[in-house]
């Protein structure tokens, strides 16, 4: 009997999953600004911050702070590890649904 694959709990929360999907849809080498990510996902700044911290602790996202003129802007990108974790997550999902992985 094959073992039931486990879903990565860091990614499996709905809001974090949407964050990871959004970041994974960006071409490699790109990062997105915090305010625009918040707007696209329709989350509050506090809520998004909490989710990003969890993803950062797992090593799935990289958060960089930059200055554009005098305005500080935070950028978020998926790390290589995060991209790999998301690929494994979708494979595990398909396996749960009985598809070919």
């Amino acid at each position: 009997m094959t073992a039931v694959p486990e879903l990565d709990p860091v990614i499996h929360a709905q809001a974090r999953l949407r964050v990871v999907v959004t970041l994974s849809a960006l071409p490699g080498g790109d990062r997105v600004s915090f305010p625009s990510l918040k707007k696209m996902l329709d989350l509050t700044a506090g809520n998004l911050s909490v989710h990003l911290t969890k993803l950062e602790e797992a090593g799935y996202v990289e958060i960089t702070k930059a200055h554009e003129g005098r305005t500080p802007v935070t950028y978020v990108a998926l790390t290589r590890r995060g991209r790999l974790a998301f690929e494994e997550y979708t494979e595990a999902l398909r396996a749960l649904l009985g598809g070919v992985t």
């Binding site: 959004t22 960006l26 071409p27 790109d30 997105v32 600004s33 625009s36 696209m40």
Partner: peptide, 8 residues
């Protein structure tokens, strides 16, 4: 609406 920086 997504402000993207980097290679793109």
């Amino acid at each position: 609406s997504l402000r993207v920086k980097g290679h793109t």
